[in-house]
Design a protein around this nucleic acid. Structure first.
Lengths: 208, 208
DNA sequence: ATACGATTTAACTATTTGGTTAAACCAGTT
DNA sequence: AACTGGTTTAACCAAATAGTTAAATCGTAT
Protein backbone atom coordinates (compact mmCIF):
# COMPACT_ATOMS: atom_id res chain seq x y z
CA UNK A 1 0.00 0.00 0.00
CA UNK A 2 1.02 3.53 -0.69
CA UNK A 3 0.91 6.72 1.28
CA UNK A 4 -2.62 6.49 2.63
CA UNK A 5 -2.41 9.36 5.09
CA UNK A 6 -2.11 11.90 2.29
CA UNK A 7 -5.04 10.38 0.45
CA UNK A 8 -7.35 10.39 3.41
CA UNK A 9 -6.28 13.88 4.23
CA UNK A 10 -7.06 15.15 0.74
CA UNK A 11 -10.35 13.29 0.63
CA UNK A 12 -11.30 14.74 4.00
CA UNK A 13 -10.37 18.24 2.90
CA UNK A 14 -12.58 17.84 -0.17
CA UNK A 15 -15.53 16.57 1.84
CA UNK A 16 -15.20 19.38 4.35
CA UNK A 17 -14.99 22.02 1.66
CA UNK A 18 -17.85 20.44 -0.28
CA UNK A 19 -19.99 20.28 2.84
CA UNK A 20 -19.54 23.93 3.51
CA UNK A 21 -20.36 24.89 -0.08
CA UNK A 22 -23.31 22.52 -0.63
CA UNK A 23 -24.84 23.32 2.71
CA UNK A 24 -24.86 27.06 2.10
CA UNK A 25 -25.61 27.17 -1.63
CA UNK A 26 -27.48 23.94 -2.32
CA UNK A 27 -26.67 21.46 -5.06
CA UNK A 28 -27.63 23.77 -7.92
CA UNK A 29 -25.84 26.79 -6.50
CA UNK A 30 -22.64 24.92 -5.65
CA UNK A 31 -19.62 25.11 -7.98
CA UNK A 32 -16.96 22.43 -8.23
CA UNK A 33 -14.34 25.16 -8.64
CA UNK A 34 -15.38 26.81 -5.40
CA UNK A 35 -15.13 23.49 -3.60
CA UNK A 36 -11.65 22.95 -5.02
CA UNK A 37 -10.57 26.46 -4.05
CA UNK A 38 -11.88 26.06 -0.53
CA UNK A 39 -10.06 22.71 -0.21
CA UNK A 40 -6.93 24.38 -1.64
CA UNK A 41 -6.49 21.78 -4.37
CA UNK A 42 -6.83 21.43 -8.12
CA UNK A 43 -10.37 21.01 -9.43
CA UNK A 44 -9.38 17.79 -11.17
CA UNK A 45 -8.69 16.28 -7.75
CA UNK A 46 -12.30 16.65 -6.79
CA UNK A 47 -13.24 14.56 -9.82
CA UNK A 48 -10.38 12.16 -9.21
CA UNK A 49 -11.74 11.36 -5.76
CA UNK A 50 -15.48 11.55 -6.39
CA UNK A 51 -15.93 11.41 -10.18
CA UNK A 52 -19.09 13.53 -10.32
CA UNK A 53 -20.75 16.42 -8.53
CA UNK A 54 -23.72 14.16 -7.82
CA UNK A 55 -21.60 11.50 -6.12
CA UNK A 56 -19.78 14.08 -4.03
CA UNK A 57 -23.12 15.61 -3.07
CA UNK A 58 -24.51 12.26 -1.97
CA UNK A 59 -21.52 11.69 0.25
CA UNK A 60 -21.93 15.12 1.81
CA UNK A 61 -25.68 14.80 2.25
CA UNK A 62 -25.39 11.43 3.93
CA UNK A 63 -22.66 12.76 6.21
CA UNK A 64 -24.72 15.75 7.28
CA UNK A 65 -27.79 13.63 7.78
CA UNK A 66 -25.77 11.02 9.64
CA UNK A 67 -24.39 13.49 12.15
CA UNK A 68 -27.84 14.76 13.06
CA UNK A 69 -29.59 11.39 12.97
CA UNK A 70 -26.86 9.82 15.09
CA UNK A 71 -27.22 12.33 17.89
CA UNK A 72 -30.99 12.44 17.75
CA UNK A 73 -31.64 8.72 17.75
CA UNK A 74 -29.07 7.95 20.43
CA UNK A 75 -30.67 10.57 22.65
CA UNK A 76 -34.11 9.12 21.99
CA UNK A 77 -33.13 5.56 22.88
CA UNK A 78 -32.61 6.53 26.50
CA UNK A 79 -35.89 8.40 27.03
CA UNK A 80 -38.20 6.63 29.46
CA UNK A 81 -40.89 9.29 29.90
CA UNK A 82 -42.45 12.16 28.01
CA UNK A 83 -40.57 14.60 30.19
CA UNK A 84 -37.25 12.99 29.43
CA UNK A 85 -38.17 12.71 25.77
CA UNK A 86 -38.89 16.42 25.55
CA UNK A 87 -35.68 17.31 27.35
CA UNK A 88 -33.64 15.02 25.14
CA UNK A 89 -35.15 15.89 21.79
CA UNK A 90 -35.10 19.65 22.27
CA UNK A 91 -31.71 19.51 23.94
CA UNK A 92 -30.15 17.54 21.14
CA UNK A 93 -31.66 19.61 18.34
CA UNK A 94 -30.72 22.87 19.97
CA UNK A 95 -27.14 21.80 20.54
CA UNK A 96 -26.81 20.57 16.95
CA UNK A 97 -28.66 23.44 15.30
CA UNK A 98 -27.19 26.26 17.35
CA UNK A 99 -23.91 25.14 15.81
CA UNK A 100 -25.24 24.38 12.34
CA UNK A 101 -28.43 26.38 11.85
CA UNK A 102 -28.32 25.95 8.08
CA UNK A 103 -28.97 22.21 8.27
CA UNK A 104 -32.79 22.29 8.28
CA UNK A 105 -33.09 24.40 5.16
CA UNK A 106 -30.42 22.32 3.44
CA UNK A 107 -32.03 18.98 4.26
CA UNK A 108 -35.57 20.14 3.56
CA UNK A 109 -34.70 21.80 0.28
CA UNK A 110 -32.61 18.97 -1.12
CA UNK A 111 -35.11 16.37 -0.03
CA UNK A 112 -37.92 18.28 -1.73
CA UNK A 113 -35.81 18.70 -4.83
CA UNK A 114 -34.96 15.03 -4.99
CA UNK A 115 -37.38 12.89 -2.95
CA UNK A 116 -35.73 9.65 -4.11
CA UNK A 117 -32.91 10.49 -1.71
CA UNK A 118 -35.28 9.74 1.15
CA UNK A 119 -35.86 6.18 0.09
CA UNK A 120 -32.13 5.63 -0.08
CA UNK A 121 -31.58 7.09 3.39
CA UNK A 122 -34.51 5.42 5.10
CA UNK A 123 -33.01 2.08 4.17
CA UNK A 124 -29.94 2.79 6.28
CA UNK A 125 -31.60 4.89 8.99
CA UNK A 126 -35.05 3.90 10.15
CA UNK A 127 -36.31 6.25 12.84
CA UNK A 128 -37.92 4.25 15.64
CA UNK A 129 -41.27 5.90 15.12
CA UNK A 130 -43.17 2.89 16.47
CA UNK A 131 -41.18 2.90 19.69
CA UNK A 132 -41.81 6.60 20.18
CA UNK A 133 -45.53 6.27 19.55
CA UNK A 134 -45.67 3.41 22.00
CA UNK A 135 -43.99 5.43 24.71
CA UNK A 136 -46.39 8.31 24.16
CA UNK A 137 -49.44 6.04 24.13
CA UNK A 138 -48.34 4.34 27.32
CA UNK A 139 -47.81 7.68 28.98
CA UNK A 140 -51.18 8.97 27.78
CA UNK A 141 -52.86 6.02 29.46
CA UNK A 142 -50.81 5.69 32.63
CA UNK A 143 -50.58 9.40 33.40
CA UNK A 144 -53.96 10.45 32.02
CA UNK A 145 -52.57 12.87 29.42
CA UNK A 146 -54.84 14.51 26.92
CA UNK A 147 -55.59 12.00 24.16
CA UNK A 148 -53.78 13.65 21.28
CA UNK A 149 -52.59 11.55 18.35
CA UNK A 150 -48.97 10.58 19.19
CA UNK A 151 -47.83 11.23 15.63
CA UNK A 152 -49.24 14.74 15.74
CA UNK A 153 -47.37 15.31 18.99
CA UNK A 154 -44.12 14.08 17.48
CA UNK A 155 -44.54 16.37 14.49
CA UNK A 156 -45.42 19.22 16.85
CA UNK A 157 -42.18 18.86 18.76
CA UNK A 158 -40.17 18.66 15.56
CA UNK A 159 -41.98 21.66 14.12
CA UNK A 160 -41.59 23.80 17.24
CA UNK A 161 -37.89 22.94 17.43
CA UNK A 162 -36.75 22.90 13.83
CA UNK A 163 -38.89 25.57 12.20
CA UNK A 164 -37.26 28.59 13.86
CA UNK A 165 -33.88 27.44 12.55
CA UNK A 166 -35.14 26.74 9.05
CA UNK A 167 -36.98 30.05 8.90
CA UNK A 168 -34.51 32.04 10.97
CA UNK A 169 -34.11 34.71 8.32
CA UNK A 170 -37.87 35.22 8.19
CA UNK A 171 -38.31 35.31 11.95
CA UNK A 172 -35.31 37.56 12.40
CA UNK A 173 -36.50 39.82 9.60
CA UNK A 174 -40.22 40.00 10.12
CA UNK A 175 -40.76 39.40 13.79
CA UNK A 176 -37.62 41.02 15.17
CA UNK A 177 -37.13 43.55 12.37
CA UNK A 178 -33.50 42.53 12.00
CA UNK A 179 -32.64 43.01 15.67
CA UNK A 180 -30.11 40.21 16.18
CA UNK A 181 -29.91 40.68 19.95
CA UNK A 182 -33.63 40.22 20.45
CA UNK A 183 -33.56 37.26 18.12
CA UNK A 184 -30.70 35.61 20.03
CA UNK A 185 -32.57 36.12 23.30
CA UNK A 186 -35.62 34.59 21.67
CA UNK A 187 -33.65 31.51 20.58
CA UNK A 188 -32.03 31.14 23.99
CA UNK A 189 -35.37 31.17 25.74
CA UNK A 190 -37.02 28.98 23.16
CA UNK A 191 -35.80 25.56 24.28
CA UNK A 192 -37.37 25.90 27.68
CA UNK A 193 -40.44 27.51 26.20
CA UNK A 194 -41.05 24.53 23.93
CA UNK A 195 -40.78 22.14 26.87
CA UNK A 196 -43.18 24.23 28.94
CA UNK A 197 -45.56 24.74 26.05
CA UNK A 198 -45.80 21.09 25.09
CA UNK A 199 -46.15 19.94 28.68
CA UNK A 200 -48.83 22.51 29.24
CA UNK A 201 -50.65 21.19 26.20
CA UNK A 202 -50.55 17.49 26.97
CA UNK A 203 -50.75 17.32 30.79
CA UNK A 204 -54.24 17.69 32.22
CA UNK A 205 -52.88 18.88 35.55
CA UNK A 206 -50.80 21.92 34.72
CA UNK A 207 -47.16 21.37 35.60
CA UNK A 208 -45.85 24.78 34.60
CA UNK B 1 -50.90 53.10 -27.95
CA UNK B 2 -50.40 49.80 -29.62
CA UNK B 3 -51.85 46.36 -29.10
CA UNK B 4 -51.67 46.13 -25.31
CA UNK B 5 -53.78 43.01 -24.89
CA UNK B 6 -51.16 40.87 -26.62
CA UNK B 7 -48.38 42.32 -24.47
CA UNK B 8 -50.15 41.75 -21.18
CA UNK B 9 -51.05 38.26 -22.27
CA UNK B 10 -47.45 37.37 -23.11
CA UNK B 11 -46.14 38.96 -19.96
CA UNK B 12 -48.66 37.05 -17.89
CA UNK B 13 -47.77 33.80 -19.62
CA UNK B 14 -44.10 34.40 -18.83
CA UNK B 15 -44.78 35.17 -15.19
CA UNK B 16 -46.95 32.10 -14.80
CA UNK B 17 -44.38 29.84 -16.42
CA UNK B 18 -41.57 31.43 -14.43
CA UNK B 19 -43.49 31.03 -11.20
CA UNK B 20 -43.97 27.36 -11.77
CA UNK B 21 -40.32 26.82 -12.64
CA UNK B 22 -38.77 29.00 -9.92
CA UNK B 23 -41.07 27.67 -7.25
CA UNK B 24 -40.19 24.04 -7.94
CA UNK B 25 -36.51 24.35 -8.82
CA UNK B 26 -35.38 27.49 -7.02
CA UNK B 27 -33.44 30.36 -8.57
CA UNK B 28 -30.26 28.36 -9.18
CA UNK B 29 -32.05 25.33 -10.58
CA UNK B 30 -34.32 27.33 -12.88
CA UNK B 31 -33.47 27.67 -16.57
CA UNK B 32 -34.60 30.55 -18.76
CA UNK B 33 -35.11 28.11 -21.63
CA UNK B 34 -37.46 25.98 -19.56
CA UNK B 35 -39.47 29.06 -18.65
CA UNK B 36 -39.70 30.04 -22.31
CA UNK B 37 -40.74 26.52 -23.32
CA UNK B 38 -43.40 26.38 -20.63
CA UNK B 39 -44.72 29.78 -21.74
CA UNK B 40 -44.61 28.57 -25.36
CA UNK B 41 -42.56 31.52 -26.57
CA UNK B 42 -39.07 32.30 -27.75
CA UNK B 43 -36.43 32.61 -25.04
CA UNK B 44 -35.53 36.09 -26.26
CA UNK B 45 -39.03 37.21 -25.30
CA UNK B 46 -38.35 36.44 -21.68
CA UNK B 47 -35.40 38.79 -21.79
CA UNK B 48 -37.31 41.34 -23.84
CA UNK B 49 -39.93 41.58 -21.10
CA UNK B 50 -37.78 41.17 -18.00
CA UNK B 51 -34.18 41.79 -19.13
CA UNK B 52 -32.54 39.45 -16.60
CA UNK B 53 -33.23 36.25 -14.73
CA UNK B 54 -32.80 38.15 -11.47
CA UNK B 55 -35.45 40.75 -12.36
CA UNK B 56 -37.90 38.05 -13.44
CA UNK B 57 -37.23 36.17 -10.24
CA UNK B 58 -37.90 39.22 -8.11
CA UNK B 59 -41.22 39.76 -9.85
CA UNK B 60 -42.16 36.12 -9.24
CA UNK B 61 -41.00 36.09 -5.63
CA UNK B 62 -42.90 39.23 -4.78
CA UNK B 63 -46.00 37.84 -6.46
CA UNK B 64 -45.86 34.60 -4.52
CA UNK B 65 -45.18 36.39 -1.29
CA UNK B 66 -47.92 38.90 -2.03
CA UNK B 67 -50.57 36.24 -2.53
CA UNK B 68 -49.81 34.59 0.80
CA UNK B 69 -49.26 37.80 2.75
CA UNK B 70 -52.46 39.30 1.38
CA UNK B 71 -54.63 36.45 2.55
CA UNK B 72 -52.89 36.06 5.89
CA UNK B 73 -52.90 39.68 6.93
CA UNK B 74 -56.48 40.32 5.84
CA UNK B 75 -57.57 37.32 7.88
CA UNK B 76 -55.62 38.58 10.88
CA UNK B 77 -57.13 42.05 10.80
CA UNK B 78 -60.52 40.71 11.73
CA UNK B 79 -59.44 38.53 14.67
CA UNK B 80 -60.79 39.80 17.98
CA UNK B 81 -59.84 36.90 20.24
CA UNK B 82 -57.22 34.17 20.52
CA UNK B 83 -59.79 31.64 19.44
CA UNK B 84 -60.67 33.58 16.34
CA UNK B 85 -57.00 34.23 15.68
CA UNK B 86 -56.22 30.54 15.77
CA UNK B 87 -59.13 29.68 13.52
CA UNK B 88 -58.20 32.39 11.03
CA UNK B 89 -54.47 31.83 10.89
CA UNK B 90 -54.62 28.04 10.57
CA UNK B 91 -57.59 28.22 8.23
CA UNK B 92 -55.89 30.65 5.91
CA UNK B 93 -52.57 28.84 5.86
CA UNK B 94 -54.17 25.48 5.29
CA UNK B 95 -56.30 26.75 2.43
CA UNK B 96 -53.31 28.43 0.78
CA UNK B 97 -50.80 25.65 1.41
CA UNK B 98 -53.04 22.73 0.60
CA UNK B 99 -53.15 24.27 -2.87
CA UNK B 100 -49.50 25.37 -3.02
CA UNK B 101 -47.53 23.22 -0.61
CA UNK B 102 -44.22 24.12 -2.23
CA UNK B 103 -44.43 27.74 -1.09
CA UNK B 104 -42.80 27.35 2.35
CA UNK B 105 -39.68 25.63 1.06
CA UNK B 106 -39.43 28.13 -1.78
CA UNK B 107 -39.78 31.19 0.41
CA UNK B 108 -37.54 29.85 3.18
CA UNK B 109 -34.82 28.71 0.81
CA UNK B 110 -34.68 31.85 -1.29
CA UNK B 111 -34.80 34.08 1.75
CA UNK B 112 -31.92 32.18 3.35
CA UNK B 113 -29.98 32.33 0.10
CA UNK B 114 -30.51 36.04 -0.28
CA UNK B 115 -31.47 37.73 3.01
CA UNK B 116 -31.38 41.18 1.43
CA UNK B 117 -34.67 40.27 -0.22
CA UNK B 118 -36.30 40.46 3.18
CA UNK B 119 -35.39 44.07 3.72
CA UNK B 120 -36.87 44.93 0.37
CA UNK B 121 -40.08 43.09 1.13
CA UNK B 122 -40.52 44.29 4.68
CA UNK B 123 -40.56 47.84 3.35
CA UNK B 124 -43.72 47.11 1.38
CA UNK B 125 -45.28 44.55 3.71
CA UNK B 126 -44.94 45.12 7.42
CA UNK B 127 -46.65 42.37 9.38
CA UNK B 128 -48.65 43.86 12.23
CA UNK B 129 -46.62 42.04 14.85
CA UNK B 130 -47.28 44.72 17.48
CA UNK B 131 -51.03 44.47 17.03
CA UNK B 132 -50.89 40.69 17.35
CA UNK B 133 -48.76 40.80 20.48
CA UNK B 134 -51.13 43.32 22.00
CA UNK B 135 -54.14 41.12 21.37
CA UNK B 136 -52.39 38.15 22.94
CA UNK B 137 -51.22 40.16 25.96
CA UNK B 138 -54.70 41.53 26.50
CA UNK B 139 -56.16 38.04 26.31
CA UNK B 140 -53.54 36.68 28.68
CA UNK B 141 -54.55 39.25 31.25
CA UNK B 142 -58.31 39.34 30.79
CA UNK B 143 -58.82 35.59 30.43
CA UNK B 144 -56.04 34.48 32.75
CA UNK B 145 -54.11 32.50 30.14
CA UNK B 146 -50.74 31.00 30.94
CA UNK B 147 -48.16 33.77 30.77
CA UNK B 148 -46.20 32.64 27.74
CA UNK B 149 -44.24 35.17 25.69
CA UNK B 150 -46.63 36.31 22.91
CA UNK B 151 -43.87 36.19 20.32
CA UNK B 152 -43.08 32.58 21.20
CA UNK B 153 -46.76 31.77 20.81
CA UNK B 154 -46.90 33.44 17.41
CA UNK B 155 -43.85 31.51 16.26
CA UNK B 156 -45.36 28.32 17.68
CA UNK B 157 -48.50 28.69 15.61
CA UNK B 158 -46.49 29.46 12.48
CA UNK B 159 -44.19 26.51 13.14
CA UNK B 160 -47.00 24.05 13.82
CA UNK B 161 -48.83 25.16 10.69
CA UNK B 162 -46.07 25.75 8.15
CA UNK B 163 -43.47 23.14 9.07
CA UNK B 164 -45.43 20.08 7.93
CA UNK B 165 -45.79 21.62 4.48
CA UNK B 166 -42.14 22.66 4.24
CA UNK B 167 -40.95 19.26 5.42
CA UNK B 168 -43.73 17.24 3.82
CA UNK B 169 -41.30 14.96 2.02
CA UNK B 170 -39.53 14.17 5.29
CA UNK B 171 -42.72 13.58 7.24
CA UNK B 172 -44.22 11.53 4.46
CA UNK B 173 -41.03 9.54 4.08
CA UNK B 174 -39.88 9.02 7.63
CA UNK B 175 -43.02 9.10 9.72
CA UNK B 176 -45.48 7.59 7.26
CA UNK B 177 -42.97 5.48 5.35
CA UNK B 178 -44.24 6.81 2.05
CA UNK B 179 -47.88 5.95 2.73
CA UNK B 180 -49.64 8.85 1.02
CA UNK B 181 -53.08 7.93 2.34
CA UNK B 182 -51.98 8.03 5.96
CA UNK B 183 -50.14 11.27 5.29
CA UNK B 184 -53.22 12.87 3.73
CA UNK B 185 -55.32 11.81 6.69
CA UNK B 186 -52.68 13.30 8.98
CA UNK B 187 -52.79 16.63 7.14
CA UNK B 188 -56.59 16.68 7.13
CA UNK B 189 -56.73 16.20 10.87
CA UNK B 190 -53.88 18.54 11.54
CA UNK B 191 -55.68 21.88 11.32
CA UNK B 192 -58.06 21.00 14.11
CA UNK B 193 -55.27 19.36 16.07
CA UNK B 194 -53.20 22.55 16.03
CA UNK B 195 -56.15 24.56 17.31
CA UNK B 196 -56.82 22.05 20.10
CA UNK B 197 -53.15 21.72 20.96
CA UNK B 198 -52.48 25.43 21.22
CA UNK B 199 -55.65 26.09 23.18
CA UNK B 200 -54.81 23.27 25.52
CA UNK B 201 -51.39 24.81 26.05
CA UNK B 202 -52.42 28.39 26.73
CA UNK B 203 -55.78 28.07 28.51
CA UNK B 204 -55.53 27.24 32.21
CA UNK B 205 -59.02 25.78 32.24
CA UNK B 206 -58.96 23.03 29.67
CA UNK B 207 -61.36 23.76 26.81
CA UNK B 208 -60.76 20.61 24.79
C1' DA C 1 18.96 4.26 -8.57
C1' DT C 2 15.13 2.71 -10.44
C1' DA C 3 10.80 0.99 -11.38
C1' DC C 4 5.94 1.31 -10.06
C1' DG C 5 1.64 2.85 -8.75
C1' DA C 6 -0.88 6.30 -6.61
C1' DT C 7 -1.46 11.33 -6.54
C1' DT C 8 -1.47 15.96 -8.42
C1' DT C 9 -1.38 19.50 -11.91
C1' DA C 10 -2.17 22.39 -16.08
C1' DA C 11 -4.38 22.53 -20.13
C1' DC C 12 -8.20 21.28 -22.54
C1' DT C 13 -13.12 19.99 -24.16
C1' DA C 14 -17.98 19.85 -24.80
C1' DT C 15 -22.03 21.62 -23.31
C1' DT C 16 -24.99 24.59 -21.06
C1' DT C 17 -26.50 28.98 -19.97
C1' DG C 18 -27.84 33.87 -19.61
C1' DG C 19 -28.00 37.29 -22.54
C1' DT C 20 -27.75 39.97 -27.37
C1' DT C 21 -28.71 41.31 -32.09
C1' DA C 22 -30.52 42.15 -36.36
C1' DA C 23 -33.95 41.20 -39.10
C1' DA C 24 -38.87 39.91 -39.74
C1' DC C 25 -43.63 40.60 -38.43
C1' DC C 26 -47.80 42.72 -37.30
C1' DA C 27 -51.34 46.27 -36.30
C1' DG C 28 -52.75 50.54 -36.45
C1' DT C 29 -51.98 55.57 -38.76
C1' DT C 30 -51.43 58.66 -42.50
C1' DA D 1 -49.62 51.55 -50.07
C1' DA D 2 -45.99 53.14 -47.25
C1' DC D 3 -44.62 54.48 -42.42
C1' DT D 4 -44.17 53.64 -37.56
C1' DG D 5 -43.45 51.44 -33.26
C1' DG D 6 -44.09 47.72 -30.48
C1' DT D 7 -43.51 42.56 -30.71
C1' DT D 8 -41.48 38.15 -32.07
C1' DT D 9 -38.07 35.09 -33.99
C1' DA D 10 -33.74 32.66 -35.37
C1' DA D 11 -29.15 32.90 -35.04
C1' DC D 12 -25.54 34.12 -32.43
C1' DC D 13 -22.05 35.12 -28.48
C1' DA D 14 -19.25 34.98 -24.42
C1' DA D 15 -18.81 33.19 -20.09
C1' DA D 16 -19.28 29.54 -17.01
C1' DT D 17 -19.23 24.89 -15.86
C1' DA D 18 -18.76 19.77 -15.16
C1' DG D 19 -15.80 16.69 -16.58
C1' DT D 20 -11.31 14.70 -19.16
C1' DT D 21 -6.56 13.84 -20.36
C1' DA D 22 -1.85 13.33 -20.53
C1' DA D 23 2.01 14.39 -18.47
C1' DA D 24 4.55 15.40 -14.12
C1' DT D 25 5.48 14.34 -9.25
C1' DC D 26 6.04 11.85 -5.20
C1' DG D 27 6.69 8.10 -2.01
C1' DT D 28 7.92 3.39 -1.44
C1' DA D 29 9.46 -1.12 -2.28
C1' DT D 30 13.00 -3.66 -4.81
Amino acid sequence: MNNMAKTENTELKIVEAATSVFVHKGFDGARMQEIADKAEINKAMVHYYFRTKQKLFERVFENVFEVVAERISSSLETSKSIDELLENITGTYFSVLAEKPYIPDFVIHELNRNPELIVHIIKTRGINKAKLSELIITEIQSRSLKPFDPLQIIVNVLALTIFPFAASSIIKGFIFEGDTEKYDKFVNERRQHIIDFVKSAIFKDQKT
